[in-house]
Amino acid sequence: MDTVVDMAKAIKIQAKDVNVFYGEKQALNNVSIDIEDRSVTAFIGPSGCGKSTFLRCFNRMNDVIPSCRVKGSIMMGDVDVNSPQTDPVLLRARIGMVFQKPNPFPKTIFENVAYGPRIHGLAQSKTELDDMVEDSLKKAGLWGEVADRLADQATGLSGGQQQRLCIARAIAVGPDVLLMDEPCSALDPIATSVIEELISELQQRFTILIVTHSMQQAARVSQKTAYFHLGTLVEYGDTKDVFTLPKNEQTEAYISGKIG
C-alpha cells in the first residue's frame, strides 16, 4: 500500500486571492486554491455561486465577456495566467475546455478533432494529423464508435457522443489541464456514466477541474472537492473528507440537501 506521503501530488495550479466582477457586481471573493497535478478536482455549490466563473478564470475565457474583470494571481508552473504578457490564445492551447452543452462545430467528426491541431500547426503531414485524430478519439473513448464514419457530420452524433467528441477535440491540442463545466448536465444517465469512467481514465494524463451540480458525481470522480457559496470558497479538501466529515456547516447543509 502507498503511504499518505507518497500519494501527495505536486501542485499544478496555484490561485491566490482571485476576485471577479461583472460590471459592478462581484461574483468571486478572494478565492485561493492549490490544484494538484493529475487529479480530478470538483467544484460544487448552489447555482449562481460562481463555479463556472472561477473555472473560466483558468483559461481566461472571462476575457470574452466585455463586462468581466478578473483580479488576483493564478500561477500554472511559471506561467502567470492573468499577466498581460500571457497570450490567452496560447494559454488555451495548454488548457482545454469542455462545456455544459456539447458544442461540436457543424463540420465532420474528423474536422472537429483536427481543428485544434490545424490552427496551432501541430501536424506536419496528413498522416500525422490522421494519427493525432485517431489518438485523441481513442483517448476520449469514441474511436470504436466513429472509426468508420469520420467523414459524417458531427451534429449527427448522440448527445453523449458529441460530448466525448468535444473532449477529443480538446485533447487533440495536447493540453495538460482540462476544464469541464457540468459536462454531463445535458446527458442521460448512461452517457453520463460513460463520461465519468472516461474522466477517471483521463486523470492519469491530465489535471482535471470539473464543475458539477451532482454530488454523487463529485464523490465518484474527484479526489479533491471545493465547495463554493455566494462567491467564496467555503471548504476545500479531499473528497472523502468533504463528503463524510464536512468542517463547515454550510457545506454540510448543502451536502445533506438543505441548500440547493
Binding site: 490564445v89 488555451r92 492551447a93 482545454g96 462545456f99 462545430f105 481543428y115 485544434g116
Partner: peptide, 15 residues
C-alpha cells in the same frame, strides 16, 4: 450562430 460555438473555438485557442 450560437455563442457556444464561439466559446468552443476560443476554448481551443483560436484567435
Amino acid at each position: 450562430v450560437p455563442q457556444s460555438l464561439r466559446d468552443g473555438a476560443y476554448g481551443l485557442g483560436s484567435t
